[in-house]
Design a protein around this nucleic acid. Sequence first.
DNA 1: TATAAGGTATTACGCTGCGTTAAAGTCAAT
DNA 2: ATTGACTTTAACGCAGCGTAATACCTTATA
Lengths: 248, 248
Amino acid sequence: MTMRVKEVADLIGISTRTLHHYDQIGLLSPQKTTSAGYRLYSEENLKTLQQILFFKELGFPLKEIKEIIFSPSFNQQEALLLQLKMLVEKRNNIDKMIKTVDKTIKHMSGEIKMTNEEKFEGINFSHKAYEQEARKRWGNQSVEHLNEKIKIMSKAEQNSLSKRWVTIFKKLALFCDYSAESQDVQAIIKEWYDFLNENFKNYSLDEFYGLGLLYMEDERFTKNIEQYGAGLTRLMSEAMKVFVDNQK
Amino acid sequence: MTMRVKEVADLIGISTRTLHHYDQIGLLSPQKTTSAGYRLYSEENLKTLQQILFFKELGFPLKEIKEIIFSPSFNQQEALLLQLKMLVEKRNNIDKMIKTVDKTIKHMSGEIKMTNEEKFEGINFSHKAYEQEARKRWGNQSVEHLNEKIKIMSKAEQNSLSKRWVTIFKKLALFCDYSAESQDVQAIIKEWYDFLNENFKNYSLDEFYGLGLLYMEDERFTKNIEQYGAGLTRLMSEAMKVFVDNQK
DNA sequence: TATAAGGTATTACGCTGCGTTAAAGTCAAT
DNA sequence: ATTGACTTTAACGCAGCGTAATACCTTATA
């Protein structure tokens, strides 16, 4: 059951040149060659080739693959386990990317279809029981004022406003794994603070601090904001606290 | 909110050289440059960069990415949808690989740990109700004879036997998407036929044909053999039919 | 048995996507 | 004004093959 280059190539789905190359660099030499110099690959060779392609798929350079495969401690079982682990990691990575892309798409089409009301969903703290708590703790000024403003604003304004804060969140999401104290994060928080002051009402530092706490506790808010990045709510709240502390 | 090369590089996780390169080939040029020639990247640039890296991750060459991105019909939304689709495909691919590796591992460790009895599970047609059906249709000769042989064989023999047929399955699995009539598949089926004849009993062509049908219907068998490749059972049965037809 | 078709080997140059110096200018802080 | 961290352009290098070009091998068919 020996195969020649093209048979192997066609079977596995690579080029003959690749096999030649692998032979040339000593990565995979055929078990036998005919007197005419034809390469004859064995079943064993095929197995090795599979291993090589697995590692390649995982992004290993051929040099390392060679070392791995020719290592005296190389062990099919272990190699497979390693591959499994890396494949799973790779899949997790792709899952993350899928989620990101998916959310982005949803949000993009969402931005188009969303009504003005919906557009502020998760940020509009007006209804339900939570409102009560909010009033208790921070007075009803900020919440009520916010709602008032939103209702009054023209559609056009809402649109551009919506875009502006989405932009801020997206920007912040880029620093998801930065610390709340970092310059970059703080700069964005300042933007957020200014944005709120410009568009809704003048927040005292204490009110702003309270807002940060609110964010953490309101599901409607966290759901919305976590779209832009896991842990964004926490980062935002913390950063808002840091911001207030720094201003004082 | 403009960023210099290293900021962008560190943020995104690539090298400054890469950004230089992208600028050089006109794939991504910074929105502005200072009088000193410093590259200043905008938010918009970052978005584009993300798109570029997405496509790159999906294996597109930079030239094509450039065409895509600069195409007048380029549309973020569409691009994202495309990316989503390709990411999902890639994940499916990886899932397949994971399953393959996983099964291989299970089987390898299985081969070590399995008892002699278990080793033949899924191929040993002896117990339960199914046996009855088998007898009805193909007489009890083949099934009983097989079981007899298995019970009599020494451990060592079982071991080597097990390995031999696993090898045959694995080999066949390589041709999972070939037609049952193909030379390669038929060659392996012949191996299988010879193997059975050598080790268990002489099968008439009709018995061998019947065996192929049995395979399709016995869950214990299909479960076992499908480990080596999806659709392997069907392929094997069909190929056995073809084999018998060709011999007549 | 000769001839054509299709595989194969070797050699060698080309190409992509950067890594990696190297030499020199910029910027901010001390 | 000097350091140190960053920036620029330019140039060479390198992996992992693709792509000829040229010559040889094998097999089927006439």
